[in-house]
Simulated scan of single mutants.
Amino acid sequence: MAKRTWMKGLIGLAGVGALVAGGLYLYGSSSGNTPPATVDFAALDTQATQQLYQRGEQVFRAGDCAACHSSPQSGNELAGAVSIVTPMGTLHGTNISPSKQHGIGNWTADDLYRAVAAGVAPGRKVLYPAMPYVSYHQITRADVDALWFWLMKQPAVEVANKPNAMNFPFNIRPAVAMWNVVNRPDPKEAEPGTDEIARGKYLVNVLGHCAECHSPRTGITFAIDRSRDLGGNVIEGAYAPPLTPEAMSQRGWTKEHLVQFFRTGLSPQGSMTFRMFPVLEHSTSRMPEEDVRAMTAYLTQNQQMPGPKVEPAPAQAQLNVNGERLYLGLCAGCHGVQGDGQPHSAVPMRTNTTAMFSTPINLIRVIREGVPEHDLPNGGRVQTMPG
């Protein structure tokens, strides 16, 4: 038995060694082709500088960079330290301010393109795919150039990066290059197009990288299962629901309610919670309305949507008497006996999609953990819901 265990350990070490060796071999060739810059940064006049700066901030918002790279302590959107919990360990968003010691102040626009589109940072450092380069691989070079220009104009934040806590063997970073060979598409600029749905597709699939949370993962490599794109997934203990037009229709969404949800965080279908709240705070609420409408046009494919669903009340014999008693005693004071809610105060429950999901984990978490009082973008506010 001891000999067999020793042999298994030896085989395991050999496997890890092979991964490391293969990863080191691929280190230098994993960044793909880098298209030339689209702008001469040294020759910009005042008007061009302003336009490029504004576009860079739009890319920053649409790319949802701050949701992972903001500081939970200071709120600075570039300081890093957001924890990203994965089955392989915990990662932390990095400092992406122009700090030369802790951030990306020494990076060129080419460096940023390779990191964003290929997952390779300067020094041939392979990034973990929590950086959504699998989705960003189609980002346009023009968008990266604008983003780099905007980032370099922000104040440097002198805050050191928080070390990752990945489990063995996933803490062997060169081996990520092997993962990239199997799962990362080569960088290839998309054509965003000019019509609304094409623009929405680019915003949802590339910049917004919605599939990273809302698509199932494969069981072997934990890569996005592209055969079930936007088909829903459980991530960090929460359910990211399907975003296909059929699923959205079944849950009673309309295009106008989606626009309202992205802009304000509230709609008849519920409110933004968990990881979606930072997306609202830093991204969708600050995007141009035409971009938000393009996203909803793509997600719904401009189909006619039925609107909020109200399930018929079950027969008295089918009611869970204990559940009804708890709801009336604990919830009805704010959400109403019939679950109609209160405007600008308590979301309705009769049309709330969280109560319609095939899994109750989000509803259970909200009930157990509660919702803290907080402001919403564009003038809204959520009152405290006790856990």
Rank of each mutant, 00 (worst) to 15 (best):
N161P: 04
F222L: 11
Q154R: 11
G63P: 03
P268F: 03
T264D: 05
C331E: 04
G219H: 09
M166D: 04
K255Q: 15
T34Q: 09
R263Q: 11
A142E: 10
L19I: 08
I224N: 01
A130N: 04
D110Q: 14
T244N: 08
V382P: 00
P216D: 06
G380F: 07
N302K: 14
M131S: 07
L243A: 00
G370K: 10
L91A: 05
A42M: 09
P132K: 00
R368E: 12
D111N: 15
D229I: 13
M295A: 09
V310W: 02
V157C: 07
G329H: 11
G23W: 02
T46N: 09
P372Y: 07
N33E: 15
V182L: 15
T264P: 01
T351A: 03
A313S: 15
P245T: 04
V39D: 03
A130R: 00
R124K: 11
E373R: 13
V181M: 12
G56M: 03
S74R: 12
A121L: 11
V234L: 14
G17I: 12
D186R: 06
R217M: 09
F222W: 05
I11K: 06
N164C: 01
G339F: 02
L78K: 02
F60A: 06
V234C: 05
T94W: 00
P288T: 05
S83Y: 04
Q304T: 14
E189W: 05
T46F: 08
V159G: 00
M305D: 01
A190F: 09
L112V: 04
S30I: 01
G341T: 07
K100F: 02
R293I: 11
S29H: 13
R381S: 10
T140R: 06
Q383H: 14
E289P: 04
E77R: 14
G237R: 04
T194L: 09
R381T: 10
A21S: 12
P343R: 10
M178D: 02
V176P: 00
C65L: 03
C213S: 05
E191L: 11
Y298I: 05
E373T: 08
A294M: 07
D375A: 15
L330Q: 15
L376H: 13
A247L: 05
V159I: 11
C213G: 00
S285E: 03
D375K: 15
H335K: 09
D111I: 04
T49P: 02
C65Q: 01
G329S: 13
H374T: 11
V116M: 10
Q50C: 08
P36R: 12
S74M: 10
H374N: 09
H335T: 10
A66G: 06
T351E: 04
P72V: 10
